[in-house]
Nucleic acid binder design. Sequence first.
DNA 1: CGTCAAGCGATTTTCGAAAATTCTTCATCT
DNA 2: AGATGAAGAATTTTCGAAAATCGCTTGACG
Lengths: 225, 225
Amino acid sequence: MNEHATLNASVFSQLRQDILTGRLLPGERLRAETLRQRYDVGGSPVREALMRLEAEGFVVLEENKGFRVADISVAHLQDLSRTRVEVEGLALKWSIAKGGVDWESAIVASMHRLASVPKRLDTAGHEQNAVWLRYHREFHASLVAACDSPVLLSIRNRLFDQAERYVALSISAGGEVRDDVGEHRAIMDAVLSRDVEMSVVLSRRHIERTTQKLLAAMESRAVSA
Amino acid sequence: MNEHATLNASVFSQLRQDILTGRLLPGERLRAETLRQRYDVGGSPVREALMRLEAEGFVVLEENKGFRVADISVAHLQDLSRTRVEVEGLALKWSIAKGGVDWESAIVASMHRLASVPKRLDTAGHEQNAVWLRYHREFHASLVAACDSPVLLSIRNRLFDQAERYVALSISAGGEVRDDVGEHRAIMDAVLSRDVEMSVVLSRRHIERTTQKLLAAMESRAVSA
DNA sequence: CGTCAAGCGATTTTCGAAAATTCTTCATCT
DNA sequence: AGATGAAGAATTTTCGAAAATCGCTTGACG
């Protein structure tokens, strides 16, 4: 894809992806030598990538003791959820206020794409999970795309990614992800009819329900690796 | 202070401070060699610190072309402000809901400290400006300290720091900062009487008024260095 | 038997120099 | 004159090794 990118950037996105999709587990130690081999680069790019990820909250640095993948916890997921409900709601509100026709069509388009992914996901190939996750992210992104606030959007995206890590971990640990096409369509309808109140409520419920599933999944199996 | 910290951490906080207080100006180029001399360290700590600052939005990296101090703009300040009003309001709401007596006393204490700083600040020593800025930050932090949401708080802090950069730049460019003890006391009273509605409104007005002053200052003198 | 300290191996952190890239200058050609 | 492009300078990016730090083992001593 992006072949001419700098090594640091490449390691950054790979590492980020590996953490986000659960290929690197929460709490896992990130030894410099191991990572250098894994991505076939020197120490500097690795270290720089880790620093960026630390600022984004995907990685934790204990001084002179090295990096670890950020831990997950019930408390953190709940906190994330609470905050996300508010931020997503706000972004939705602003987006509805400012969105035009092209914004609407983009929503319809991404909804269509999301709905096109086959339903059974849990035990099906990782391939399809990845596709669904991508369309799902893009659908939700399209809803708030018109909010016209880079600051708010970057916050939203950060929170979304953090939450998606829990989803990915829950999937990769054998959990099934609900593909509530209906739920998404309801949100879309509310948004397209410019019903702020309803949109925010449905968005909140959507997030809260997902959180409930994730919490259940976390409690069922031992949380710690 | 923290003598045993790692070099990277030291450079990070110094660099951050230099940007936040306007010793390094928006858009200014950050050459590796210059910074190495300035902080008397090798290239690695500098680079790593810059990467972290980039993720925090204080620095911009153009690949293979180096780092620059993040630009400021009217649009960004307005966006920041709008977002901050909402986030700060939410944090206030949650804090009021959960705060106990110790939270209240901490607020009273920091209000007292803030009010103790002499009024005339503009042309007075940089020293006093720094003290006021610190007490000001601590006062506002104490208001939301009980919100019990690390996620929301970290967002709030990030936004606060970004906004403070505009304040510092406006001061260092010769502007005067209003020290509205009354305004702060009004917020405190509303918060301590657990009047969420009033607290949020006053908080909003406080932020918006500051923003107006900053915008005026930005337009009066040429924005670009 | 337990505690403490010294030493050793493993790991992180930092440096200095090599490799790669971008920017500048200047000569050449149309 | 203007455009083109190739050599050289400045700067960023990356590497590999040195320096510093941490954690553990081992052995001495109370």
